[in-house]
Amino acid sequence: MTWKIYLSGEIHTDWRDEIAEKAKALSLPVEFFAPVTNHAASDDCGVTILGQEPNKFWHDNKSAKVNAIRTRNLIEKSDIVVVCFGEKYKQWNAAFDAGYAAALGKSIIVMHGGSHQHALKEVDAAALAVTETPTQVVDILKYVIKGEL
């Protein structure tokens, strides 16, 4: 079986690449999915494809809906959803992804530093594991998939 893993969350660091590289080094049978991680493309896809909007609300609304087509489908197809919250920005979209995954009954692994513990207590409570590093995420995947510590 190939496990399908959706990697949701911040797009300003290389955490996704680190998880993928470590999983590959362990020969884990996984396939990773992610949102569009090009920030400008993600922010502007709606107006680029569907036409400009003079009001920023509708500009963002168009892009959020176009992005949701990808996000919803990939979360639905995934066995595990990893949600990473970075230190620099508030990732409301990641919190929404975690809630959507929880509503679908998906297994969720959350990753964030200690400074977000209080703000993310509800997200953490819905997760089956709360981690701080990509290595911990991969160690969980190794254990879950191979039964090895």
Results as ranks from 00 to 15, higher is better:
Ala20Tyr: 05
Leu120Trp: 05
Asn73His: 12
Asp97Phe: 05
Leu74Val: 06
Glu53Ile: 08
Thr37Pro: 02
Asp97Thr: 05
Tyr6Leu: 05
Glu76Phe: 09
Ala95Asn: 09
Pro134Ile: 04
Trp15Thr: 06
His59Ser: 14
Leu149Asn: 14
Glu76Cys: 07
Thr13Arg: 08
Gly86Gln: 04
Gly105Met: 08
Val30His: 00
His118Val: 13
Asp43Met: 13
Asn67Cys: 13
Val36Tyr: 03
Tyr143Glu: 00
Gln91Lys: 09
Asp60His: 10
Lys106Leu: 02
Ala25Ser: 15
Phe32Ala: 08
Ala64Tyr: 07
Thr133Asp: 06
Glu10Leu: 06
Ala127Tyr: 05
Glu148Phe: 02
Ile5Asn: 01
Lys142Ser: 00
Val144Ser: 00
Gly147Lys: 00
Met111Thr: 09
Leu141Asn: 02
Pro134Ala: 14
Lys88Pro: 01
Ala23Leu: 04
Ile140Phe: 04
Val83Trp: 05
Asn61Leu: 15
Asn73Leu: 13
His59Val: 08
Tyr100Thr: 04
Glu10Trp: 07
Asp79Gln: 12
Lys65Ser: 10
Pro134Gln: 07
Ala119Lys: 14
Gly147Ser: 04
Gly114Ile: 08
Leu149Ser: 13
Tyr89Gln: 10
Leu74Tyr: 13
Trp15Ala: 07
Ala68Glu: 10
Lys24Gly: 13
Thr37Ala: 09
Ala101Val: 04
Thr135Tyr: 08
Ile140Val: 10
Ser27Thr: 03
Val123Asp: 03
Leu149Ile: 11
Glu87Ser: 10
Ile108Lys: 04
Ile80Lys: 00
Leu74His: 11
Ser8Val: 04
Ser78Met: 07
Tyr89Lys: 11
Lys4Ala: 06
Thr2Pro: 10
Asp97Ser: 05
Arg72Asn: 13
Leu120Ala: 03
Val83Pro: 03
Asp79Tyr: 08
Phe32Thr: 04
Glu76Gln: 10
Asn55Val: 13
Ala95Thr: 08
Val81Leu: 05
Glu148Cys: 02
Ile145Ala: 01
Leu104His: 09
Ala129Pro: 01
Lys90Met: 12
Thr2Leu: 14
Ala68Ile: 03
